[in-house]
Nucleic acid binder design. Structure first.
Length: 562
RNA sequence: GCGCCCAUAGCUCAGGCGGAUAGAGCAUCGGAUUUCUAAUCCGAAUGUCGCAGGUUCGAGUCCUGCUGGGCGCGCCA
């Protein structure tokens, strides 16, 4: 597709004398496919030639020499509509996908070192759907950027430091630690945290106690440190279970605590460069009217979130020499990251412009009856149960011999992951059980179904891949539509990477699966005439490849039977 | 008060750098299965693209103002 487009732009530049870049911006696939495969609006040409657009289009159509791969050019009003040599196009796309296999679509520039900071849940707090967004978007970006050949370092910047440990500790003192045989110790810790913070409203002593605990922790007090290590270990084990279940891996778990002993040096650097000032006893940097005063050290000497991120980004640069660092963090923290970038610029850091905040909207409505956030673990369990019920009660034809629970697990994950990744990052989402766990329509399971269907064809249709794909045996419009959609995969991936938007890939895949499902009604393989059978099979196998690649970019493992 | 984000069908959302008649899914109604998986497919119906101006041959898309909603603004993270 992109090759054909380039050839057309060159030919049009030749024929019109217009700037190739301007032509490239104008050439577009017509919304109505009856008009052709690509169209060139002739308004600019008309202006250059002093004609009206329809005349210019007609004149261009008469003299235009078709570049290779094109079959026809005709004027329609102010547009020059072009049609591909479709059989050649289909053959080319299918052979290319089959030849490149799981590397198809990876035709990117690559070569950069990119740090992605994502997920970053708080220790001793529940892992809920808010963390899920950062986790899934971040993980998908890791997959996409790696696919394009970049070196990607995924970092989980754990919230493993802060006054919240004081509350957990205060709660445990009053109501006890989780017993050794506690089936869900993190839930118990969360309960202690919630009860302690609730209690502080009536009893100010609790707050003082929590602050004192944190002060002792920062001072290296043995008892406080031991409790912190215990709570951190319990939480990490829980997080790892969840990450393993979804299939997520990090390259580093360097959380906030990791940077504790590194902040003094950074603060000293800020002071040495003379860009900071003391204000009301606190130390920070004035960044102007818009960005405000960036606090780096509280009046009591304690550091802040910004101090830690400033320290962390410097550490990451010296460790990885990144070309770019992405922070997959909620939109409300936009100011924080602008301050971080501005601070780095003021410090003359070479990576100041490499800092990219990848924001996302908040999730509303994800609440339990008691008002707390739903723990991800419970959410997943509910999802699997629903998938199992749907499979047994709603699915009409079920393959025999399936491990239903295993399939339900994969379907549930597909539904949850896709539901989150399919919408634009920045939009706030209102959580809805039925919508998030729908298995019909524009959903993860719909994509999985298309993939599994093709797999079924491979197993049962008795076809083999042809030695060479012949486009004349794939002459149906459905074959052309499917090939066209497959040909757009590389640009969808590239655009997703440029905009840090996994939803571009998600939307692409829905269109691909829809196109397949339509084709599948018409292009039967099993009882097809022998001369077309293997070629149709090749078309679908290529489609399966693109579906599988795309699903993996979203962090979803394609399934073969469902 | 200042700043950032959002507003498209009854609901949830897509709409590359401005291009021809604004698209999907859900829900509703009707149809397709002795067939490689019906978690599918086909058809019908559905719009003041928040409002008002502006730029342009052409605006859902760009600019300005306004309305509504969300969020942020030095001692939380």
């Amino acid at each position: 597709m992109q090759e054909l487009r380039r050839a057309l732009v060159a030919a049009l530049a030749d024929a019109t004398g217009l700037d190739p870049e301007a032509i490239d911006g104008a050439v577009t696939p017509p919304r109505n496919p009856d008009h052709g495969d690509l169209a060139f609006p002739c308004f600019a040409l008309a202006r250059a030639r002093g004609q009206n657009p329809a005349q210019a289009a007609a004149a261009l159509a008469r003299t235009f020499v078709l570049p290779p791969g094109f079959a026809r050019a005709e004027a329609a009003g102010p547009y020059l509509n072009l049609r591909f040599d479709r059989t050649a196009f289909v053959a080319r796309v299918v052979s290319r996908v089959l030849a490149e296999g799981n590397r198809y679509g990876a035709s990117g520039t690559g070569g950069l070192t990119i740090v992605v900071d994502f997920s970053s849940p708080n220790i001793a707090k529940p892992f809920h759907v808010g963390h899920l967004r950062s986790t899934l978007i971040g993980w998908s970006l890791v997959r996409i950027l790696r696919f394009l050949g970049h070196t990607v370092i995924g970092i989980n910047h754990l919230g493993d430091w802060g006054t919240q440990f004081g509350y957990v500790h205060a709660g445990c003192r009053r109501w006890g630690r989780p017993p050794d045989d506690d089936p869900d110790p993190i839930e118990t810790l969360v309960d202690r945290y919630v009860r302690a913070t609730r209690l502080k409203d009536e009893d100010p002593a609790v707050e003082a106690e929590a602050r004192d605990f944190f002060r002792r922790l920062e001072a290296g007090d043995a008892e406080a440190t031991a409790f912190w290590e215990y709570a951190r270990a319990v939480s990490l084990e829980e997080f790892r279970t969840i990450y393993d279940r979804i299939g997520i891996r990090f390259d580093a778990f360097t959380g906030e605590a990791f940077f504790n002993d590194k902040m003094a040096a950074v603060l000293a650097e800020v002071e040495a460069k003379g860009i900071g000032e003391i204000s009301d006893g606190a130390f920070g940097v004035a960044l102007g009217e818009e960005l405000g005063f960036a606090l780096l050290r509280k009046a009591d000497g304690a550091t802040l979130y910004l101090t830690r991120d400033l320290t962390a980004v410097d550490y990451r640069y010296s460790t990885y020499r990144f070309d770019r660092v992405l922070y997959v963090v909620g939109a409300p923290q936009a100011l924080h990251f602008r301050q971080l970038g501005a601070l780095c610029a003021r410090l003359g850091k070479p990576y100041a412009d490499a800092i990219v905040h990848v924001p996302f909207g908040h999730v509303h409505g994800m609440r339990t009856r008691s008002g707390g956030a739903v723990a991800l673990k419970d959410f997943l369990e509910e999802a699997v149960e629903r998938a199992l019920t749907a499979f047994r009660e709603e699915v009409v034809k079920r393959p025999a011999g399936l491990d239903e629970r295993a399939v339900a697990e994969q379907i549930a994950l597909s539904a949850i992951l896709f539901n989150d990744l399919a919408r634009g990052r920045i939009k706030d989402v209102t959580f809805d059980w039925d919508e998030a766990l729908s298995f019909r329509g524009d959903t993860g399971p719909y994509l999985q179904y298309a993939h599994a269907r093709i797999n079924g064809i491979a197993l049962k249709a008795g076809a083999e891949l042809p030695v060479a794909v012949d486009g004349h045996r794939l002459a149906e419009d459905e074959a052309y539509q499917l090939a066209t959609q497959m040909s757009r995969f590389p640009e969808a991936v590239a655009r997703a990477a440029e905009t840090y938007e996994p939803s571009v890939v998600a939307g692409y895949l829905l269109e691909l699966a829809r196109t397949f499902s339509r084709s599948n009604e018409v292009l039967r393989v099993k009882d097809a005439p022998p001369e077309v059978k293997d070629h149709r099979f090749a078309l679908f196998v290529a489609c399966r490849q693109v579906l599988a690649s795309g699903l993996r970019l979203l962090g979803i493992e394609p399934i073969d039977r469902m």
